[in-house]
Design a protein around this nucleic acid. Structure first.
Lengths: 238, 238
DNA sequence: GCAGATAATCTGTATATACAGGTTAAAAGC
DNA sequence: GCTTTTAACCTGTATATACAGATTATCTGC
């Protein structure tokens, strides 16, 4: 998409850099080789390298600092177009005390739906967590998440009351793509019990699936109620 | 934001082009002067012009076609990060028949809230519309919108059953910025009557305010129910 | 009048040079 | 050992040339 022709030295350099970032070889904040190093390695002139890197900077892949070097840009829109990121940060930014209750944290065989999502066979073990996030002790979000075991092998040892799965995945796989669906719903009995609400409480349902390159990283279903059941952000990139 | 330094010929060219687009002097699809013309007009070398235009292309402002010319890019993210655009198109894309009921289409004095939004004094006349959008005759979205009279003077004559205000505003002011808030809610009595639903139906509330340059274009409150009460889209720009 | 060949126009790419200016690490001085 | 100066390094900018390739309008010939 980014470079359909893919011919030309400049496009090749750009494609190479993007590949390195997509694969995770170069992480946000990492320093890239200098223009001179690229020049020597690839046999292209400095200006050609310069233009390639400059274009990637304009597209948001890189950050360049005069006198210092070229760096992989921090992942910004990793969670959503809207400002919601780590639920813990969201809760705490509203001057409420964050707490979490871990309902489940286990290895679970993929059902047919998750097998489709993760592109594996039904029965393949996936990591599975159910966490209730609370603000000042009151439940505000129910998180049910499946995680690819290969991308987060330390999953079983994580203390999910202290650190959200979201933040753990952000550290290990900061830049990834995904799809997100937002809807409204009413809670069923199980959800009512966990969120301590009744069946008339309107809730926001966020289903998010993200991946890096070709590996599905995680699939999450978030049910938000009360003050957390809204999203806000800028629209239009101009 | 785009060019804080603003010094340098290249930045000046870029700033000039962006200004022309922002102000509406150059509309999406319009053809820009050629590199040679810029060169002659601004006294810069062709490569300098070339790099400036190329950068704006990478940032999504322009589209360039070899052998043809440089054009203002079509506005893409004008409505939301998610795919929802014209409600009529959304309804029809789900193979349903679109219809609309115009509840109000008038000039209305700004209350204190809208005066704050539009940056005018309370009492200033604004265009005001309330429209119920239906899919196969069943209400799916309630739209209450205020429009700046200066940006859409033909408002009173519009047939809102045939053409949505959204599409009208898109034609006259295609590229604009804005803020959007999405939440969940339950309908009050008036909304229940218009949407033909009960008070237990969960609804999605979308409040959107957009502007061009420094003039507020429109403020809309959309209440969606049923199949329209969800949004879906890609996340992550990488 | 219409179709095809031709020329003009315009962007794409690669490369070269020259200098400006910020950053960083090494070297010199105390 | 610590501070200060210096030099090396790196990106930013502007400009020039040369050629490739696509598009569009013009001109020619039938």
């Amino acid at each position: 998409m980014s470079s359909p022709p893919a011919n030309g030295i400049r496009s090749q350099i750009a494609a190479y850099v993007i590949d390195q970032i997509r694969s995770g070889a170069w992480m946000p904040g990492d320093r890239l080789p200098s223009e001179s190093q690229f020049m020597a390695t690839l046999g292209a002139s400095r200006m050609t390298v310069h233009h390639a890197l400059r274009e990637l900077t304009a597209q948001g892949w890189l950050v360049r600092r005069k006198g210092s070097g070229t760096y992989v840009a921090p992942a910004q829109t990793y969670a959503s177009h809207y400002g919601h990121r780590d639920i813990r940060q969201e809760v705490e930014s509203s001057d409420a005390a964050y707490s979490a209750r871990v309902v489940a944290q286990e290895s679970k065989a993929a059902g047919e739906d998750m097998a489709r999502v993760f592109g594996c066979e039904a029965g393949t073990p996936l990591f599975h967590a159910v966490v209730v996030h609370c603000a000042d002790g009151r439940p505000v979000e129910l998180e049910e998440r499946y995680v690819n075991p290969q991308v987060l092998p330390e999953f079983p040892a994580l203390d999910l009351t202290q650190r959200t799965l979201f933040s753990c995945l952000m550290l290990s796989h900061p830049s990834r793509e995904g799809v997100e669906t937002i809807g409204v719903m009413l809670c069923n009995a199980a959800e009512q019990a966990l969120l301590e609400c009744d069946g008339a409480t309107p809730a926001m349902e966020i289903i998010r699936c993200s991946w890096t390159g070709d590996a599905i990283v995680t699939h999450a279903r978030l049910v938000r109620i009360g003050a957390m059941a809204y999203l806000s952000g800028d629209i239009g990139r101009r």
